[in-house]
Amino acid sequence: MSKGKILVIDDEDIVRLSCSRTLVPEGYELKMAKNGPEGLKLLEEESFDLVLTDLKMPNMDGIEVLANIKGKWPATDVVIVTGYQTVETAVKAIKLGAFDYIEKPFTPDTLIATVSNVFKIRNK
């Protein structure tokens, strides 16, 4: 029994790999998507507890992905991962319903802490 189902949307292989190598040993079930549309397609097929999405991606950026998820699957939490954080986008993301945001580069510990924080609140 996994601790939860997480979808990681990021155009960078290394980020996706870092997430899986950090979170899988922690007991989470992980699926990956290379971009926004691919992630949304996966979301159509199955449900996820949490989506970790990059902010800046080709085709569709993280804010758009967030808006889509919050529109169709409000029960799914979203954490924005960003390498280019500004107050503006952070405020915008939180306003649109993002649970939190993580700055790149993150350490395994911060990622685990943030994710476990999400599930702690979800499981209440």
Binding site: D10, E12, I14, V15, L17, S18, R21, T22, K56, G83, Y84, E103, K104, P105, F106, T107, P108, D109, L111
Partner: peptide
């Protein structure tokens, strides 16, 4: 810097993560 930051932060994430592992 904004462009570079985005490009470099992802590989850095890999380095930091795998370093910790």
């Amino acid at each position: 810097a904004a462009g570079v930051a985005h490009e470099i932060n992802s590989p850095l994430t890999g380095i930091v993560t795998f370093g910790h592992l």
